[in-house]
Computed example of a mutant assay.
Amino acid sequence: MAKVKIIDVARAAGVSLGTVSNALNHPEKVRPETRRLIEETIRELGYTPNQSARMLAGGHNNMIGLVLPQLNHGFCLQIISGAQNEAQKHGYSLIFAVSGRDEDLEEQLLRHFMGTQLAGMLFQPIPRPAWTPRPNPTVPIVYLDAEGPDEGAFVTADNEAQGRLIAEHAASCGARRVAVIGCAHEGVLSRRVTGIRESLSTHPDIELEVLDAGEWDVSGDGFGLGQQLSRRDGAERPDFIIALSDVLATGAIAGIRAAGLSVPEDIRVAGCDGNPLAWSGAVSLTTCAPAGYEMGRKGVQLLVEMIEAEQEPQASHVRLGNRVQSPRTEDHPARRIETVRPFLLERASTRGAAATTSSAHRSPQVPETNLGAYL
């Protein structure tokens, strides 16, 4: 089957070639009724614009790429939603790919996206100790949930503030023995612990215990830790558990209930990371509000600023590797950081009566995330 060309669209719609080109590239220059006619003709003929040809002809690519490490966390789905909605407001489209936490695949995806001459990219790197921003990217790039030591554009969640917020809530609930569960030495989790310690340092009457155990995305680990803490003698048992992730928190609630205790009457439980995919437990969870949507939205805002700055005519330019950039100014600094601030979602797990279910006769189950319900 012969490929449909732009001239075929013009002939079928009874308009000039220039009018079709304007409808595709500068729709504001074409009357609405003419645009609708051309769009209907494009759909009927199955015409697909040649993006490479448009770029060679000096056209503007309105596509933004997004590379994520995974899709098994509500945070990543929120990033996509926030980025998509904000991109549309600015006249851009969004495409995304997932590395599956495979560093080799992550590198392949980055090379592919930059090689397709996208307008710009958002990139959430796989968490690793020695991560640094990519040197000399060929397109504007904004890093999400990461921060490098040198120049670059970054949007981050304030993980220390998340820890402080939950710890302050524990103190306001009258907690006297607080236990923190999760791999407290790892990345963003360690920063949440720093915030918790900082906040509770002003409450010397509150005992703080940090159990450096429990993978952040395994609710079964939370279940086991919840049971373990519940089985302690009353004088040693915590009255408030802060889980460093919501998945651990929902597991801990199930473990406490399996041990015969109640949430929040016997032990209050709170999460930290605002993950809606972990909110299907029997007791609604106190946690921080989800930060992913705002991170995606701010990421696109920052990226559009960078794209437009590169399109501005400048008297002189600076060459960085194989990419020519405009000189850095106070309006367009070499290092930009946007921070998403947290706020509290207070629910039944730390306040009010514990939830009841019609299936109380069944054995307690470890709650797992249900990705399909959110896709």
Rank of each mutant, 00 (worst) to 15 (best):
A161L: 10
D233V: 12
P149K: 04
A291T: 13
N25V: 07
E103K: 11
G321R: 05
G91D: 08
V142L: 06
E39D: 13
R341N: 08
A353I: 07
G58E: 10
S284K: 10
R319L: 13
E106N: 11
E33R: 09
S363A: 15
K298T: 15
R268N: 04
I126P: 07
L109V: 05
R35E: 01
I242E: 00
L320C: 04
S219M: 05
C173I: 01
A53H: 04
A83G: 12
F123I: 10
P140G: 12
A315L: 10
E103P: 07
I242S: 01
A235M: 01
T156G: 00
C173M: 12
S199L: 03
I267M: 09
Q311P: 01
N159T: 13
N275C: 13
A213V: 12
A235V: 12
P313R: 03
S349C: 11
G271H: 01
I267C: 05
Y143R: 07
L94C: 06
F240Q: 02
S99L: 01
V9I: 09
E294Y: 00
G251E: 04
I241F: 08
L189Q: 09
S172K: 15
P264I: 04
H60D: 02
N322V: 04
E209L: 11
G299W: 06
A348R: 13
L375W: 14
D221L: 04
P140W: 06
A282E: 09
N159M: 05
V210K: 02
A258K: 07
S245Q: 04
A119K: 05
E330L: 14
A249W: 01
A23G: 08
P49G: 06
L71I: 15
L211H: 15
G152R: 02
V218K: 10
L277H: 08
L17Q: 12
G174V: 09
A13P: 02
A119W: 03
H361R: 08
A291M: 11
I196Y: 07
S262G: 06
P264H: 03
E86F: 05
S199W: 03
G174C: 06
G120W: 03
L248A: 03
A57I: 05
E346T: 14
